[in-house]
Computed example of a mutant assay.
Amino acid sequence: MDVPHRPPRHPHAWLPLLLLSQLLVAWAWWRWGWPLGLPLMLASHGICLWGVLAPNVALYGPVLSRLPTADRSVWLTIDDGPSDDTAAILDLLDAHGAKATFFLVGERAAARPGLVREIVARGHGIGNHSLTHPQARFWALGPRRMRAEIEGGQQALATITGTAPRWFRAVVGHANPFVSAPLHEAGLARVGWSARGFDALDGDVERVLGKIERDLAPGAIVLLHEGAAHGRNPGMIAQLLQRLDARGYRTVLPDP
């Protein structure tokens, strides 16, 4: 499927906008005092934080959250591997004639290169999901560490497969101002999602699948995980594939 691939074109565009907003806040504070200046300052900071924490917000660069199609097709994306679940998930996908993109963590990929090559050999996609998956602090990484996470993940996966990934999934979906520059330089486009069940945390299969099904629609990007502590990710994916088949959905991968 032909999907717009949009790496950030102007990775530092946020900086003049931020400076301008704070100059306006300072002017309003000087002109009308704190009763207006303080709320404006809090609002401007809130908008900046919203762009960091909200997964599909494009404040710091483009993010793809659904496919441009009216067909009953979805893009399955599987985060956090490779893991002990990867082989079982590949067999499930094969059994249903389904395809998915695996957003892999660089260090985990380097530890299990055979699984990474098997993903590619079976016709699935590979995406960059950072080098070390620092989920508690990815949102607050500075420019040097952010670059190391993105470039390190890219290098690890390219070394194993011979091809650099084209898609990036931010850890926990967070993206601060320092994400765009390394994505621009690596030619990576950021991918969000439009359907999720919180399967990385919730081990209740019916509850997880119910949340995903509520958001299923033509062009949905479905967020899934592997290797969760509850150990039920393969079972969840098995049932999701059955339900997709029953509802007439097919899985697609973005070109190429």
Rank of each mutant, 00 (worst) to 15 (best):
N176R: 03
A70L: 10
V52K: 03
T132P: 02
V205F: 01
P35F: 11
I212L: 04
H124K: 11
G203T: 13
N233Q: 10
A238P: 02
A148K: 14
A111I: 09
H174P: 00
T132W: 12
A26T: 12
F178E: 09
H133I: 06
S73E: 15
A109D: 05
R9V: 05
H12M: 02
W75D: 05
L216R: 07
R169H: 04
T159Q: 15
A58Y: 08
F178R: 13
G152S: 08
E151N: 10
Q155R: 15
H225D: 02
G203A: 14
V3P: 03
R144P: 00
G61I: 03
G219Q: 04
A228T: 07
H133P: 03
P39H: 04
G33W: 08
A246S: 07
C48P: 00
Y60H: 09
T77H: 09
F102L: 04
P39S: 05
M41I: 00
G127L: 01
T77W: 06
R66S: 15
L15W: 14
D79C: 03
W32C: 04
I89C: 07
P177A: 09
L67K: 10
L216N: 03
E149L: 05
M146Y: 09
T163W: 05
D85A: 08
A121T: 04
H12L: 14
P134D: 12
M236H: 06
E107W: 12
V172D: 07
P143F: 02
I126L: 00
V172F: 08
E226L: 06
L36E: 05
H174L: 01
G97D: 04
E118Q: 13
P182A: 08
P82A: 12
P113E: 13
A170D: 08
D245V: 02
L59K: 02
R190I: 01
L53P: 00
L42C: 06
L209N: 11
I237P: 03
R243E: 01
I237Y: 11
H225C: 06
P55K: 09
V222L: 12
R108W: 11
L67Y: 10
I47P: 00
E118R: 15
G125C: 10
F138Q: 06
G210Q: 08
P177S: 12
G37Y: 07
W139T: 00
T132N: 12
P182Y: 12
L59D: 00
F168K: 11
F103R: 14
N233W: 08
G152I: 05
I119V: 15
L23G: 14
L76W: 08
L40V: 01
R122A: 08
L131E: 07
D204V: 13
E213M: 14
P234G: 10
R232H: 14
S65T: 09
D94L: 12
W34Q: 11
G197T: 07
